[in-house]
């Protein structure tokens, strides 16, 4: 360890700076979650306070927490699968076809990406009302997917671009069809991008809140993100409660990330063999 740090006189300290920049706010979140509401303002920049687990006890005693966690899991997974199923082929198609259509579609995707989410709520509410999708997980997954698909396509396209066409052409000479080449050659090579995009989509869907509170008519269906919102009341924010819930709801995220991180690392070594 010491030798490696010495070998990287610049990178080591810089990494530490990055670490501090993100660890301090996180530490503050954890400290606040352990404070009584009185201490939040009273001991803002000090570490001297009497820790209490009240906020966690309250959060964990809430029976709704477990239903909400299940809801979040279903919604985030469903959204991730649906978005990837649509965006992967689209990203590939747009990476390979050079025509005016590509230009137009890319431009439209950016405009879609630019749509304020708040502006979608009312039209989608009407649409879902007609189609009986209100108050269902399917409706929410569709809404979240419609929101995130343009983003996923834009993000995936450069990863498909960087797969050399020579490999595809070689496969074609061997008689492989376009579709087969896509699955056997292109997808494996683009997996870093796909894993990253998938992770990001999952996290975004996990945190999505505006659609959830508008399209679920009954609070029992609310996912975790909506529980977090309940800590913000008419008169102010319950900080310890908010921070404790933030910590609790982020733990599944951490687990997911550690899982995909392994995937990414394996991707690196496999890529080196190629």
């Amino acid at each position: 360890m010491r030798r490696r740090l010495l070998a990287e006189p610049v990178a080591g300290p810089l990494r530490f700076v990055v670490f501090v920049m993100y660890a301090v706010p996180l530490l503050w979140i954890i400290l606040t979650s352990l404070k009584s509401p009185a201490d939040v303002i009273g001991s803002q920049s000090s570490f001297l306070f009497e820790p209490t687990f009240d906020a966690y006890v309250t959060a964990l005693q809430n029976v709704g927490l477990y239903t909400a966690m299940q809801q979040s899991l279903v919604i985030a997974t469903g959204t991730m699968v649906l978005v990837l199923a649509i965006a992967i082929p689209a990203g590939y198609g747009l990476a390979r076809v050079d025509s005016r259509i590509t230009t137009v579609v890319l431009g439209l995707l950016i405009v879609l990406q630019m749509m304020p989410q708040t502006a979608n709520v009312i039209p989608l509410f009407q649409l879902f009302g007609q189609w009986g999708l209100l108050d269902t997980n399917l409706g929410l997954i569709i809404a979240d997917s419609a929101l995130l698909t343009p983003f996923a396509i834009l993000l995936l396209r450069p990863f498909f671009r960087s797969v050399p066409t020579a490999l595809e052409e070689a496969a074609a000479i061997d008689g492989s069809s376009v579709v087969r080449t896509f699955f056997s050659v292109v997808l494996p090579l683009a997996r870093n991008g796909i894993a990253t995009t998938g992770t990001l989509i999952f996290l975004l869907a996990w945190g999505e809140f505006l659609y959830a509170v508008n399209f679920f008519l009954t609070p029992i269906n609310y996912p975790l993100s909506a529980l977090l919102a309940s800590q913000v009341s008419a008169f102010g924010i319950n900080w310890p409660g908010l921070m404790a819930l933030a910590v609790i709801t982020s733990i599944p995220i951490l687990i997911l990330f550690l899982f995909t991180y392994r995937l990414l690392r394996e991707g690196l070594t496999l890529g080196a063999v190629k």
Binding site: V18, Y22, L203, W206, F257, Y261
Partner: peptide
């Protein structure tokens, strides 16, 4: 990296 993603995924209100 885990720390970064963790923080990024926290809701804006937090």
């Amino acid at each position: 990296l885990a720390l970064l993603v963790f923080v990024w995924a926290l809701p804006p209100v937090v």
